[in-house]
Deep mutational scan, measured.
Amino acid sequence: MSIQHFRVALIPFFAAFCLPVFAHPETLVKVKDAEDQLGARVGYIELDLNSGKILESFRPEERFPMMSTFKVLLCGAVLSRVDAGQEQLGRRIHYSQNDLVKYSPVTEKHLTDGMTVRELCSAAITMSDNTAANLLLTTIGGPKELTAFLHNMGDHVTRLDRWEPELNEAIPNDERDTTMPAAMATTLRKLLTGELLTLASRQQLIDWMEADKVAGPLLRSALPAGWFIADKSGASERGSRGIIAALGPDGKPSRIVVIYTTGSQATMDERNRQIAEIGASLIKHW
């Protein structure tokens, strides 16, 4: 058993032996400061991975655009179909130039040979490839079927209504393609630790998130040596930015963190910096 498999397999085991986890309101002070700095709403939640207890939250039940963070949920739905014998990670999917949409750094290189379902999930999560996400959405029946999958998990909040890139429109008060921090954190925890997916599929999902290559300026920039993080970021119109993550010290995840912001006029660099500073406060007061 690899170190990674050891880590995921023991998450339920550690729940019975973990020390009490204490919240630190200092992080919420930073979240509120980020709102002031960005001139935008910020949603935040910090969840204990083992118990599911909410440690801190700010606007946990307000809607925010999901942006590309939905791609983790999408690959969770794909893995659920794999577990049920309805899909194979090794199945190759062929597509054409007409299928390519904006920001497809991986799929645009494989027009001649296509990509496997496994490769598409990797591209969608680690590189946020939009065509990969659309191709995967097609395999499960489209955005409405992803919403149905989430409903069956008990998440009646999170919804996907459109495809890439239209889902990134982020119109104020538009509930399409949105979630709430509390709903996203709970759903992510179920995917990573619950019985919905097999152990192998849970491991695969967290491996893809751990290999994320496009979230460096966010929480990863504040991470001390030896800490673990598996994450997925997102960005969209109207100053929207977000990240969902499982992270913790000693090389294993122990908390879920979800951060969303929307409605800012700030630059992408400034949005990144504010999220990184929230992460730094979280780690300092861990």
Rank of each mutant, 00 (worst) to 15 (best):
G43V: 02
R220V: 02
A40G: 15
I54Y: 07
G52Q: 04
V78A: 03
R176L: 08
E62R: 04
T147D: 04
A16P: 10
D83N: 04
D99R: 08
S80E: 11
S264N: 08
D161H: 03
D212T: 07
S201D: 00
S80K: 14
I229R: 00
E195D: 14
R238I: 12
M67K: 00
L19F: 15
G114D: 15
D177C: 02
H151N: 13
V82G: 04
D177N: 04
I3R: 10
Y260W: 02
V214I: 12
V106R: 06
L137W: 00
Y44T: 01
V72F: 06
G239M: 04
S201C: 06
R241P: 01
P165A: 03
K144W: 08
I11H: 06
N134L: 00
L19C: 15
M184W: 03
I93H: 03
R241I: 00
S233A: 03
R273S: 09
A225T: 13
I244P: 01
T131R: 00
D177I: 00
D250S: 13
P65G: 05
D83P: 01
I125T: 04
A215H: 05
R41L: 08
L49V: 09
T138D: 14
I283N: 02
D155I: 12
S240E: 08
V42R: 03
V117R: 00
N50I: 14
R220H: 02
N98S: 14
S80V: 10
E87L: 09
A9C: 14
Q88I: 12
S96P: 06
G234R: 02
G39C: 12
L79A: 00
L167T: 07
A183F: 07
E210R: 13
P25N: 08
Q86N: 15
L55G: 04
H285N: 13
F228Y: 14
T131G: 07
P253C: 07
G248E: 01
A225D: 14
V117C: 03
Q97P: 15
G194Q: 11
F228S: 05
G142A: 02
M66L: 10
L136H: 00
K232E: 01
L160Y: 00
A40D: 08
L10K: 04
I3K: 12
H151Y: 14
V21I: 10
P143W: 00
H285E: 07
S254C: 10
Q203G: 10
S51G: 06
Q203L: 09
L197R: 03
T262K: 10
P60E: 15
G39D: 10
G142R: 00
S2C: 11
A183L: 04
L137N: 00
D177K: 02
Q37P: 05
L10S: 13
T267M: 08
Q97D: 15
V72D: 03
S68N: 03
T138G: 15
